[in-house]
Amino acid sequence: MNSTDNEYRVLQSWVADQLHTDITHLHWQPLPGDASFRRYFRCNVNEQAYIVALAPPETEKNTEFVAVAELLAAGNIAAPKVFAVDLEYGYLLQSDLGHTLLADVLDDDSVDHWYRQAMAVLLDCQHLPEADVAKLGAYDRDALALELSYFRVWFVEALLGYNVSDDESAMLDEMFDWVLTNNLSQPTGFVHRDYHSRNIMVVESGLAVIDFQDALSGPVTYDLVSLLRDCYVQWPAAKVDAWVADFYRQLAAREPEKMANVTLAAFKTHVDLMGLQRHIKVLGVFARLAIRDNKPGYLDDLPLVIHYVRSVVSDYPQAAEFLAWFDRALLPLAKQQDWGAAL
């Protein structure tokens, strides 16, 4: 028996202890992984299914996951229930939300129905008590700026092999300062930080949220643009604009104090520039996943993310220099990559 087999055996023994059953009664099924170092299993015992996570404590935010799960449950927001946890070893025993991701049921005919449900979940998240959300920590300038730095380090330099000059570096600093200033000027609330169709489950009661361990208190449009300009699927701009307007009206009605000084035009700009921060970050994150973590499949999603970045900056004169530089210096290099044929 190798170390991995022994690790699984210890995990199975722990699960059996939590469920007060013998290990021989557990039916164990490995599940596909995600962008993290977590490993998942479906465990069936006595016709009851559970999800078991093996989440290394040195890399995964298990304490935060449990805290956010409790916060969501208190707000009647569907999410996995944590039955047991061993923080020392990174074991979590959770409820099983089934097999169906939101991404699995989306098409041109169904997307409006499902996205309106997903936006309703976001409205519930924005209604969580501010004091409880604040305890999660702040998605502040330092955190947002750190994410933007991934773009230069991993996408520009490591993936494309482009060396940024001092003048270009100054241009990027000015561009990012403009983006962050807008990001931080908008109302704040609960931010999942990766709210998209692969992190939402279709359950009997509607939709449930997963993968929420990175949640913080931050800009109110972050999760909305993560959903509507999903890095893995694109919807017509007219649909996205209509969803943004609908969400704005509902949020303003439900949270009038929070939204008192925000017009629809300002909200749309917040959505654009929040999405710009996210997608510039994601260019770096997907490159890092490929290079550092040996997960090259994420490179195939870069063309859509590049499309989002270029589409938004083309609408803002403040980003004209960035767009000209991107198209001149980076786009030709991206088109030479195996993943760049769609550009």
Rank of each mutant, 00 (worst) to 15 (best):
M1A: 15
M1P: 14
S3D: 13
T4D: 12
L11V: 01
Q18L: 11
T21I: 04
L26H: 01
H27S: 11
P30H: 10
G33T: 04
F37H: 09
R39C: 09
R42Y: 06
C43S: 09
E47Q: 14
L54N: 15
L54R: 14
P56Y: 10
E60Y: 10
E70F: 11
G75A: 13
D86N: 14
Y89A: 13
G90F: 01
L93H: 02
L97E: 00
G98M: 12
H99M: 06
D107K: 14
D107T: 07
Y115M: 08
Q117S: 09
M119T: 11
A120C: 05
A120Q: 09
H127K: 11
A131C: 10
A131S: 12
A138M: 10
Y139N: 14
R141S: 12
A145E: 15
R152I: 08
V153H: 15
W154P: 14
A170F: 15
L172N: 06
L172K: 12
V179N: 14
T181N: 15
P187Y: 02
P187N: 02
H192T: 07
R193Y: 03
D194V: 11
D194F: 12
I210V: 04
D211M: 02
D214R: 08
L224V: 11
L227R: 01
L227I: 01
V233G: 00
W235I: 04
P236N: 05
A237R: 10
K239H: 05
W243C: 01
V244K: 10
A245L: 03
Y248Q: 06
A252G: 06
A252C: 02
R254M: 08
M259P: 00
T263R: 02
T263N: 10
K268S: 05
R278Y: 04
I280V: 03
L283I: 06
L283P: 03
L289E: 06
P296T: 14
P296K: 08
D301S: 12
D301P: 03
L302G: 00
L304A: 06
L304T: 10
L304C: 07
I306S: 05
V312Y: 07
V313A: 02
Y316M: 05
F322N: 03
L323M: 09
A334Q: 04
K335C: 06
D338I: 00
D338F: 07
A342Q: 05
L343W: 05
